[in-house]
Design a protein around this nucleic acid. Structure first.
Lengths: 107, 107
DNA sequence: TTAAGTACCTTGCGATACAAGGTATTCATA
DNA sequence: TATGAATACCTTGTATCGCAAGGTACTTAA
């Protein structure tokens, strides 16, 4: 059975949205994001996260700043840019649309 | 801006779920599915749908039967198998989990 | 017999999640 | 001072999947 595969497929496209939702609330560095998404029942791997953050940065949706850590090397804290907030608003709309679609199909 | 791309990414993983939701209600052939999903605000292309249906069939989640058409060649009507219903129930759970995740991240 | 419509399917491409592996910095300890 | 562990960032290779484009086959009507 490929249910696990499908399940991960369902989560796939949601990742970018979820990460931006998280960053809307507070700046985070990679391990923050992994942990907080995990607490919200969404698993994300390092090898997935770093390229995704780089892409969002390259597209101008995220910025970052280095912050010293009390333990270990400095951390890259990512923040939503203005463009990022704008894009996220559109993704909110897309999410509502998906909600609507699923509700229609379930009714 | 890559919002359109992200939007389609968000829909990506949902397609399989939406198609199975649709088939839970009634047997459909390809053009039925495309049209009904369209009515529910979800766009799906032929080149996407056929391989997906074949895969679900191969995995034993769907079956099909040929039915004559009053206009044109016969149609392949797909139906959920018992395994399909079972898998769909698990996807329902996954969907609830994603709902929960997004709600947590939005709060 | 030919053209249009309908239906099913395949191929090639781009995007992306993931596993595995790699580099660099910090700090504690031998 | 040297070394090992912990932390943090990043890259590479693979598999999967949606999509655009193109192809095959059957039916009906002109």
């Amino acid at each position: 059975m490929n249910t696990d595969n499908t399940k991960s497929q369902m989560r796939k496209g949601m990742l970018e949205y979820c990460i931006m939702l998280l960053l809307r609330q507070q700046p985070c560095y990679a391990n923050d994001i992994i942990q907080k998404l995990h607490e919200a029942d969404m698993i994300v791997m390092e090898g997935t996260l770093y390229p995704l953050l780089s892409r969002l940065k390259r597209d101008g949706l995220l910025g970052y700043e280095w912050r010293e850590s009390t333990q270990g090397p400095p951390r890259k804290y990512y923040v939503l840019t203005d463009d990022g907030h704008e894009a996220l608003a559109q993704l909110d709309a897309s999410w509502e649309e998906i909600l609507r679609t699923v509700n229609i199909l379930k009714s």
